[in-house]
């Protein structure tokens, strides 16, 4: 299968007030691949992730230079509608953050805000997405109960289902397993494997083994710069740079 370019980051600089958080980032992300961002805390990987769906727009005193092309269109172009952009790029957060609503309403939320009214379609879509998030069997009997009653791992899979229900192209995951136990983590990782058939996935992780297990491409960041990027296999076995090697072997970071 020929690789198709999904996202192209071009010479991106990002500032919080006077602090330069990202310097000259250029990176290509291909469709139906899992790209992992790794690097020590504060290296800018989460900031970059949040540039991709313009979540950073919410911060005051931020400035951004450069381009991010999604299917060849610059998402920072003034005439881009941020709301519909975010619908195409789903996001899963570090801590599971289901709304204080029922399981059903959590998944249906994205459809509701995007104007879907057809109840039968919505119920069908909720079931389908919960099944693809490998959660349906666990919750089908209590779908109208509060999502806050689920375990952390279930909540996170619900959040993934919620993101998928609006049928985005890209899924951004910001350390999705950092608040979960190993078994829940394993379930999410299996899920990521299945989801890349349908979605382009970018995952930020602190866990080197996780990056090695789930991703096709790994990008290593340090102090706001993209140090090295390559096939995950290559990065973890024959990194080009000493710095990368030191980090993945745990000698610093």
């Amino acid at each position: 299968m020929e690789k198709s370019l999904k996202i192209a980051i071009k010479e991106l600089n990002f500032f919080y007030r006077d602090f330069k958080a990202l310097t000259d980032i250029s990176l290509d992300v291909y469709a139906h691949e899992v790209t992992a961002f790794i690097g020590p805390s504060g290296c800018g990987k989460s900031t970059l992730l949040r540039c991709l769906n313009r979540m950073n727009d919410l911060i005051s005193y931020r400035r951004i230079e450069g381009k991010i092309l999604l299917d060849d269109q610059n998402i920072y172009d003034p005439n881009v509608d941020v709301v519909s952009l975010r619908r195409r790029i789903g996001m899963v957060f570090q801590k599971p953050n289901p709304f204080p609503k029922s399981i059903f309403e959590n998944v249906a939320y994205g459809m509701r805000v995007n104007g879907f009214k057809d109840k039968a379609y919505m119920a069908q879509q909720v079931e389908t997405t919960l099944k693809s998030a490998a959660l349906w069997d666990e919750v089908k009997d209590r779908i109208h109960e509060s999502a806050l009653g689920l375990s952390g791992g279930q909540q996170q899979r619900l959040c993934i289902a919620r993101a998928m229900a609006v049928e985005p192209d890209v899924l951004l995951m910001d350390e999705p397993c950092s608040a979960l136990d190993p078994i829940a983590t394993q379930k999410i990782e299996e899920l990521i494997h299945q989801l890349k058939e349908t979605y382009t996935i970018i995952i930020v992780t602190h866990n080197m083994q996780q990056a090695a297990r789930v991703s096709d491409i790994t990008a290593f960041f340090y102090l706001g710069e993209l140090v090295e990027t390559d096939k995950t296999n290559t990065i973890f076995t024959r990194p080009k740079l000493r710095q990368t090697e030191d980090y993945i072997t745990g000698r610093f970071g």
Binding site: N53, M55, L58, V83, S84, R86, R87, I89, G90, M91, F93, K95, N97, F99, Y109, G110, R112, V113, N114, C159, R162, A163, V166
Partner: peptide, 20 residues
């Protein structure tokens, strides 16, 4: 995180405020 989750699903600011 509620606000971010809602905005991330393509909700407008007002929808986020009103619904979440």
């Amino acid at each position: 995180t509620y606000r971010e989750a809602s905005l991330g699903l393509g909700a407008t600011k007002w929808q986020t405020i009103y619904r979440v």
